[in-house]
Amino acid sequence: MPTTQSSESVEKLKADATRALRAADSAEQLEAWRVEYLGRKGRLTSVLRALGSLEIKERKAVGAAANRLRTELESLFDERLLQAKSNTAPAGSIDITLPGRKSGSGGLHPSTQMIREITQAFNEMGFQTIEGPEIELERYNFDLLNIPADHPARDQWDTIWVDSDSRSDVLLRTHTSPMQARVMENTDPPIRVVVPGKCYRYESTDATHEWHFNQVEGLAVDEGITFADLKGTLYEFARRIFGPSRKVRFRCDYFPFVEPGVEMSVDWNGEWIEILGAGMVHPKVLKNVGYDSDKYTGFAFGMGPERISMLQNDISDIRHFFRNDLRFLTQF
């Protein structure tokens, strides 16, 4: 086979190169080695250049072997270069690979992080963050919100009631919505608030249900607020939390304290995932708190920060949030 004689064999080249590399121990020697073997006119390059003269079958085999050798030699070279440099490290050098001294590794609970992210998005749109009581009166949690007693709509909120001899209308709030009524009772329009806080439901728990959870409520009331404003505000919120390219959809839904009612979902890997419920504040709610419902309109919304956190962080069990396992918490 006369054609192979013109270039040296890959095996021999490998043997020569590794031997020479072991012998080189200064940066200068290493550079010379690099030029001889890996350089543009180096020996390995010559082998590759000569491939064209080989028969196709042999060309493939030799080519593959030569390329493998190149990768191998390059990484060996990098290793030797690093060694050579450390051998000639300046006096007083320290081991810069030792871990640094960290001052603590504290962190916020993932629910708090998400609540802050959500409220901040709305704060920047002029909504102020406020808070309200977790133990509530039926009047605020239900009656003023157009959810009369014994109405089937109340089934949407299974309630934990407070035990008392003297009264039967105290409960753990089932949503943050009672703050809508409280704010409106105490303040004249314009109103723009977001209300984060704990809520409670009489519900058995599993991976996707928890009796104890957070919500973030929102309310905007003034003259001239419209459904289009609701959409615009929530679109902007979704852009901030889920990124500008996330697809968002609004569909009709029912909550007794809004009309029209809205559900907002985002596209999550091809599936629509419900993010929040919303709607235009029901005229009865406005009247219940003493507002002139001919003059004022508004919108309200509510969402679960744990659910959004689960979505964004790929958490499959909501019960992680309140078990305070550091193996969970330290990941946020």
């Binding site: 002029g126 314009p190 905007a220 615009g232």
Partner: peptide, 15 residues
């Protein structure tokens, strides 16, 4: 269809 309703941003007095 809600998607066919336009989108605007809140105007008016901030509280």
């Amino acid at each position: 269809g809600y998607d066919n309703i336009p989108t605007t941003t809140l105007s008016g007095r901030p509280p």
